[in-house]
């Protein structure tokens, strides 16, 4: 093993002794000096996770969160210098982290917070203009064929828990005590301008958007949503998506000249 491989192993694992060959001017035990590096690595990565998952941290408290994040950091250090991506693995880790099992919705709240980071840094795209919308809706007979492009920042999270209400209550919107975590909610996460928004989608909205993402035309995507939710209201869903700038392109298949 290379010297750096040994150094790296000792950084992450406190049970591995400080690497050989480290010295100090006063012949002091290098373990104490090496601990500065150990501490820098672990604490800076826990700090990075705390920045990404503020509501997750509030739900379990800072002490619990930092202890849990420390276990995660040692088990799954970053694989890239782009730390904004670090934490993608934390929600799944939480589902397997036994002490967190008393907060069953914790992993989904963490998933929601990770989607917010992704939306924040996602590619830019203009939402549809009113003219484009009017034009696309002008011919109702062609509507089912419409190809709908979603904004690059858009993501949907379908949860068994009231993640939108829980998240909002931690932003001072609504009363946390009145939230029933056991009510399923679907979160739409999107960046509107420079702000990331978290919006509750009515049932079936996730199916509709998954259809768009799969390249299905509007008619087929709506058909899937109606099949799973018989009272699905396409007009209301489209209005909501257009209102929050979630759609960035409409196109019709090019006509083959006869």
């Amino acid at each position: 093993m290379s010297d750096q491989r040994l150094f790296a192993a000792a950084l992450l694992n406190p049970d591995v002794p400080c690497p050989d060959g480290l010295t100090a001017w006063n012949d002091s035990d290098p373990t104490r000096r090496f601990a500065v590096y150990r501490n820098n690595v672990i604490v800076s990565l826990i700090d990075a996770l705390a920045d990404t998952f503020p509501v997750t941290q509030e739900l379990v408290g800072e002490e619990f969160f930092r202890a849990m994040a420390g276990v995660f950091v040692r088990q799954a250090p970053p694989t890239s210098a782009q730390l904004v991506e670090y934490g993608e693995g934390l929600p799944t880790f939480i589902t397997q982290f036994e002490p967190a099992s008393t907060v069953p919705y914790l992993a989904d709240v963490a998933r929601l917070e990770m989607l917010r980071i992704r939306a924040f840094h996602a590619a830019d795209a203009d939402p549809l203009t009113p003219e484009q919308i009017t034009q696309a809706l002008a011919d109702p007979t062609r509507l089912p064929l419409l190809q709908v492009g979603c904004h690059p920042s858009l993501n949907v999270l379908n949860s068994r828990y009231a993640i939108v209400s829980l998240w909002a209550a931690h932003q001072g919107i609504g009363d946390l005590a009145s939230v029933n975590p056991a009510l399923p909610e679907i979160a739409l996460v999107i960046r509107v301008g420079l702000e990331v928004q978290v919006i509750a989608l009515p049932p079936g909205g996730d199916v509709l958007i998954a259809g768009f993402a799969a390249g299905l035309p509007l008619g087929e995507a709506a058909g899937l949503a109606i099949a799973t939710h018989p009272d699905f209201d396409l007009t209301a869903h489209l209005a909501l998506l257009l209102r929050c700038g979630a759609l960035s392109s409409f196109s019709l298949p090019t006509e083959v000249p006869s």
């Binding site: 010297d3 750096q4 491989r5 150094f7 790296a8 950084l11 060959g21 590096y37 820098n40 690595v41 800076s44 990565l45 990075a48 250090p77 970053p78 694989t79 890239s80 210098a81 730390l83």
Partner: peptide
């Protein structure tokens, strides 16, 4: 300095001989 090893990134500036 170095900050990566074996596909891992340590978010610190590590020393070399």
């Amino acid at each position: 300095a170095w900050s990566t090893n074996n596909g891992q990134f340590f978010n610190d500036l590590l020393p070399l001989p």
